Computed example of a mutant assay.
Amino acid sequence: MEKICVAVRVRPPVTVSEDATVNGTSWKVEENRISLHKSHGTPISGTSYAFDHVFDESCTNSRVYELLTKDLIHAAVEGFNGTVFAYGQTSSGKTFTMNGSQNDRGIIHRAVKDVFNKIHMISEREFLIRVSYMEIYNEEIIDLFAVENQKLPIHESLERGVFVAGLKEEIVSNSEQVLKLIEGGEGLEA
C-alpha cells in the first residue's frame, strides 16, 4: 500500500493587520484549496490550487499531527515504512511544524511520544528502536549526530532497502532519550 498525502499550511502573516495583504493580494483558504484574491475579494484567475489538506493560520500542530501523521506512526510500529517531511522556502514555518513550541509541540515530539506509547501497549513483541537524525540541505546529507559526517551518500541494497551510508544510529529505549538526542543534534544541548 502506497499513499502520498500533500498538505499546505498557511503561515500567519509576519505583521498582523486587519487586511493581511501583499501587493493588494492575499491567499484565501477554502476547504482543501488555496487561492489568490485581490484585496477587494475577487479571485485571480489561474491561482487556485487543490491539495489533500490545507490548514489555515489558526491550525495547531496537534491538528496537523492527528490528520497527517498519527496513522503513519501507528503503521510504522506495525512494520510499514513511512516518511514525513516538511518542504518550503526559508521562514515558511517548517521548523515550527516539525519542532513546535512549549505550548504547541511539533510533529517530531508528538511522533516520538506516540511510538513509545504504542509499543508499550504491545506485550507480545519486542522492539529495537534506532534513531538517526539527518538534514538535507542544498542536496547534501548531513548527519546531525556526528558533525564530521557530511555529504553522505544514499545507497540501496536488497537487505536494507534505501539507506544513507555512514549515518550514525543510536539505540534508544524511551521517548526522553530520543528527544535528548534530537536536542543535541540541533546544538541545543547545554
Rank of each mutant, 00 (worst) to 15 (best):
K28R: 15
K28L: 11
K28T: 07
K28E: 09
V29A: 03
E30M: 14
E30N: 15
N32G: 08
R33G: 08
R33I: 14
L36K: 08
L36I: 10
L36H: 01
K38R: 11
H40C: 12
G41Y: 09
G41S: 02
T42Y: 04
T42P: 07
I44V: 12
I44D: 06
I44F: 05
S45C: 08
S45M: 04
G46T: 04
T47P: 00
A50T: 12
D52W: 12
H53M: 07
V54C: 00
V54A: 05
F55W: 03
F55A: 02
D56S: 07
D56T: 01
E57D: 11
S58A: 13
N61T: 05
S62E: 08
R63C: 07
R63F: 04
Y65M: 08
L67V: 03
T69I: 04
K70T: 05
K70S: 13
D71A: 14
D71Y: 15
L72K: 01
I73H: 00
I73W: 04
I73R: 05
H74C: 13
H74W: 12
A75M: 12
E78L: 13
G79E: 07
G79S: 05
F80E: 13
N81K: 13
N81Y: 11
N81L: 12
N81G: 12
G82D: 10
T83R: 09
V84R: 02
F85G: 01
A86Q: 05
A86E: 04
G88H: 09
Q89C: 06
Q89H: 10
T90H: 11
S92H: 05
G93D: 09
K94P: 03
K94Y: 04
F96S: 04
T97I: 00
T97M: 07
M98S: 08
M98L: 13
M98H: 03
N99Q: 15
N99M: 15
G100M: 06
S101G: 10
D104Y: 05
R105P: 08
I107F: 00
I107L: 11
H109F: 15
H109E: 03
R110S: 09
A111T: 07
V112L: 09
V112F: 01
V112I: 11
K113T: 13
K113V: 14
D114L: 12
N117L: 14
N117P: 08
I119D: 03
I119W: 03
H120F: 09
M121Q: 14
M121I: 13
I122Y: 02
I122S: 00
S123F: 14
S123E: 13
E124V: 14
R125T: 11
E126Q: 12
E126A: 11
F127N: 02
L128Y: 15
L128P: 06
L128N: 15
I129K: 04
R130N: 10
S132C: 10
E135Y: 05
E135K: 04
I136M: 00
Y137W: 03
N138E: 10
